[in-house]
C-alpha cells in the first residue's frame, strides 16, 4: 500500500466529494471509487452482501437446484423434525419439504420486499422532484397530500389498504407501495429544494443549462446517495411488512411458498414442531437485518445524514 491521506470533503452545497491528497504520487480517485473502497473494506457490509447474494441466488435459481416440489404434500411425512433423512430442514404441516419451501419462498418474499420500494422510488421520486423543482402551488399541493398519508402508521395503512382491496399478492404490493410513496417524496423534495437554490445551480442556469440538464446532473447527482441509503432501509421494512400482510392472510395465498404465509400456517404446529414453525420467520429476520446493515454501511461510506 502506498501512503496517502484521504480528506473527506463535502463542498457546501456542491456534489459531495472526497479529495485525495496523493503523497506518493498516485492517481486521484473519484467520489464513487472512494465509496466503493470503503464499502469493500467494511466486513459487516460485505458479510451481509454475501448472505443476501446467497439467499437471492438460491431463490432465483430455485427451480434448477434439484429441490423437491415445494407444493407437493405428503400426509405420511408431516412435521418431520430438522435433519430428517431426505428432508434437511424437516417438513411442514402438510409434509412438504421445508428447505425447498424456504428457498422457493424467497422468490415471492424478496419480490414483495423489493418491488414496492422500486415503484415508490419511481413515483415518489417523480412527485418529490416536481414538488421541489417547481415549488409554489405544485409543491403545496403535493406536500400537503403527502402529509395526509403521513398521518397513518405504516403498518396500519398497509393493512387498511390491503384489507379493503382484499387478499392477494398484487393488492399487498399496491398497499406497500402506497405506504412508501410519501416518505420517498419527502426525502426527494427536501434534497431538491435545497439543491435548487444553490449558487452552482444558478451558475449552471446562467451558462445556459436547461432544466433537464440541471435535474439530471445536479439534482439527481446529489440525491443519489441519500436515496440509495433510504431505499435499502425501506427494503428491510418492506420485507417485514409484506410478510406480515401474508402472515395475517392478506398477501400471498396458499399453497404458495412465502415466508410470512408459511409462518402463519405453521403457527398451529408450535406444540409439535416448534423449530420448523420458527424457520420462516428466521428467513424474514435475516434478510431484513442484512438490508438494514448494508444501509448502515452505505450511510457511513457515503457520509449521508438523513
Amino acid at each position: 500500500m502506498s501512503e496517502k491521506i484521504t480528506l473527506p470533503l463535502t463542498i457546501p452545497g456542491g456534489q459531495p466529494a472526497a479529495a485525495e491528497v496523493p503523497v506518493g504520487g498516485i492517481a486521484q480517485r473519484t467520489y464513487w471509487q472512494n465509496v466503493w473502497r470503503r464499502i469493500v473494506r467494511d466486513p459487516y457490509t460485505m458479510a451481509c452482501a454475501f448472505v443476501l447474494l446467497l439467499i437471492t441466488g438460491a431463490a432465483l435459481f430455485a427451480p434448477w437446484l434439484g429441490l423437491p416440489d415445494p407444493t407437493q404434500s405428503n400426509s405420511g411425512q408431516r412435521l418431520l423434525p430438522l435433519v430428517s433423512p431426505g428432508h434437511l430442514l424437516g417438513t411442514d404441516e402438510l409434509g412438504r419439504d421445508m428447505l425447498s419451501r424456504l428457498i422457493h419462498g424467497g422468490r415471492l418474499s424478496l419480490m414483495m420486499g423489493v418491488t414496492p420500494v422500486l415503484a415508490a422510488l419511481l413515483i415518489g421520486g417523480a412527485l418529490g422532484l416536481s414538488a421541489g423543482f417547481l415549488g409554489g402551488r405544485t409543491n403545496m399541493l403535493i406536500m400537503r397530500l403527502t402529509d395526509v398519508f403521513y398521518a397513518f402508521p405504516s403498518i396500519l395503512l398497509a393493512v387498511a389498504i390491503a384489507g379493503s382491496l382484499g387478499a392477494g399478492t398484487s393488492n399487498a404490493l399496491l398497499a406497500i407501495t402506497v405506504v412508501f410513496i410519501p416518505p420517498v417524496t419527502r426525502v426527494m423534495e427536501s434534497v431538491t429544494t435545497q439543491v435548487r437554490t444553490m449558487d452552482f445551480v444558478e451558475a449552471a442556469r446562467a451558462s445556459g443549462a436547461g432544466s433537464f440538464t440541471i435535474i439530471r446532473i445536479h439534482i439527481l447527482g446529489n440525491v443519489l446517495g441519500p436515496v440509495l441509503v433510504y431505499a435499502t432501509v425501506l427494503v428491510s421494512v418492506s420485507i417485514v411488512i409484506s410478510a406480515g400482510l401474508s402472515f395475517i392472510g392478506l398477501g400471498a395465498s396458499p399453497p404458495a411458498a412465502e415466508w410470512g404465509l408459511m409462518l402463519n400456517t405453521l403457527r398451529e404446529s408450535i406444540f409439535l414442531a416448534p423449530l420448523n414453525a420458527v424457520l420462516p420467520g428466521f428467513m424474514i429476520f435475516i434478510t431484513s437485518m442484512c438490508f438494514n446493515l448494508i444501509s448502515d454501511g452505505l450511510r457511513s461510506a457515503m457520509d449521508v445524514r438523513l
Binding site: 410478510a243 406480515g244 402472515f247 403457527r267 420467520g281 424474514i284 437485518m289 438494514n292 448502515d296
Partner: peptide
Amino acid sequence: AIAGVSVPHYWLAIILVI
C-alpha cells in the same frame, strides 16, 4: 439494537409463545 430494529415483531411474538 440492529437485530431489534429488523426483527419481525410477529415472529418474535411466536418465539415468545413457544
